[in-house]
Design a protein around this nucleic acid. Structure first.
Lengths: 136, 136
DNA sequence: TTTTATGCAAACCGTTTGCAGGACA
DNA sequence: TGTCCTGCAAACGGTTTGCATAAAA
């Protein structure tokens, strides 16, 4: 299912800006933040505003096109991979990499221990990536 | 070891403000943010500024007196419990509760999978607490 | 007396919002 | 045509910073 169809199906209009933002994040493994997406699109869409990026990403998150990450950083990062998984960020180069992880066991542990009905879990590691380890 | 001693041992001066901030967080299970600490101390220390709270908490975090949490919220929260553990926040009442969890297995998983040297992990759940479930 | 801390106000930075003009359907 | 979207600029909220004054050692 392509993005135009998903937007329409959810009652949102299809605009060049939305298609452009999607093209910037689709299969993008760098987990960009709004600023990075903005810079990526700047050359080809010089009139696009940061506010539009934010508004678009909010919609994309709502309709399940992206996942919003909190990487113990100041800014949000976005992930086109909406399958539940963890992330690890290199504190030297700030690159973020996916970590596959079965979260069901964690959900159960938290629920059993606290009595909460558990909705979501965010797991973010920090460390030093292989490349930056070599440079040391 | 009391807080005055810890401060001195790390080269920081002991001031009434620092002792007051410590008293506000010591064995405080509510995981307060800076604003909440500020309001707590306001009656007894009306002249204390938010900036002092922030500066103090930064020192406390650096010398291992508190742990800084990122609860998928806007603001930082502080925890006097510096033992590694997870947190769960109720999306209705915003209360945050500790979750005991063995993090060594997660460290190993992330390291094996990514080649990172893993330093830290933050695990934050969201859900509905028992009290708010009853109200539904 | 020297050094560090405090409190104020202003700056910061990522994000959100209001709104007039423009684009989609 | 009616509704939704865009881009701008201003607002926002948590946090940080610079600096003059005050307090600790």
């Amino acid at each position: 299912m392509d993005i135009a169809e998903v937007l329409r199906k959810n009652g949102y209009k299809v605009t060049p800006q939305r298609l452009a933002v999607f093209s910037a994040i689709d299969h993008n493994m760098t987990h960009p933040n709004a600023e990075a997406i903005y810079r990526t699109l700047q050359p080809r869409y010089p009139s696009m505003s940061l506010a539009t990026i934010y508004k678009t990403m909010e919609i994309f998150a709502k309709i399940g096109v992206v996942q919003v990450l909190q990487c113990e950083e100041d800014a949000h990062r976005y992930d086109f991979n909406t399958h539940p998984h963890a992330h690890i960020r290199c504190v030297r180069c700030n690159n973020v990499v996916d970590v596959d992880m079965d979260q069901d066991a964690l959900f159960k542990l938290a629920a059993d221990q606290t009595g909460f009905r558990v909705d979501t879990v965010g797991i973010s590691f920090t460390g030093i990536c292989p490349e930056c380890q070599k440079k040391e």
